[in-house]
Structure formats: C-alpha cells, structure tokens
Amino acid sequence: MMKEFVSKSDFDTRQIGFDFGKTLKAGDVVCLTGDLGAGKTTFTKGIATALNVPYEPVSPTFNLVNTYDGDITLHHFDLYRLNDTEDLYSIDFDSYLFSDGIVVIEWPEISYPLLEKYYAVQLEYDGEDRKICIREVFK
C-alpha cells in the first residue's frame, strides 16, 4: 500500500494526518521522516486530533517522548538526540513498542532494527508545496 498527498498548507498537513490517524489501531507504529520544517509535528497533531487527544502535541525533541491519553494512547517520540540503537534501552523503548498505544516516531532511523511492521510517512518540502507519502513496511 502506498498513498501520496500534496499539502499546500499547515491545515492540509494536519487534515492528512487526521485522516490517516482515523485508520490507526492500537499497537500501530508510525515513522515520520523529513527535514526540519517539513511538517512532522503538524502531521502528528492531526493524528492526535483523530484520536480525540484533548491537548495540542508539542515537539518531543527535549523530552524524547510525550504520552497523550486519547481514544487510544499516543506515544510521540523524537529520537534525534539519541546516538544509536543501544540508547533505546535506556529509555525502555520496548515498553512503549509492545504497549496498547500508538507509537509515532520522528527521526526514527535508529529504531528500524527493532521494528517489524510500521507505516513510513515521508514528508518533503520543495519550497512551495509539501509532498506526503505513506506506505506500509513489513520486514
């Protein structure tokens, strides 16, 4: 499965995140890739709204993970500050991965060896529009 969308605004990105969020189930993992400013956090805000999270998610760069209660619990990670897969031990990544929540990961590269199945969401900004590509990855 692969879907492509074009976003012309923050609002569009959020709406695409919302529509995608409506399809997610407990245990799903979503990996977001794209440069700074591509809309990863905005996309996550759309997912959070779809899950009826009563807060506006903020970037988890500093906290590493923010957890929000919604219809399904949302764990929003940013692994930018971690060095390698071993670092995921110290934050007990497995306990989130095997929980009944939805895990959304920004800067997910170091976690790929641990994931068996996930949605890869790629956001690209060409200076005008944003291209959002969603595909399912199985190992």
Binding site: T85, L88, Y89, L114
Partner: peptide
Amino acid sequence: EYLIKSYADEL
C-alpha cells in the same frame, strides 16, 4: 539488575 543483551547481539 538489567541483565541486558545488546540489541546488536539480539538481532
């Protein structure tokens, strides 16, 4: 007592 085996070994 974490008793970890590194992810690298495990995989």
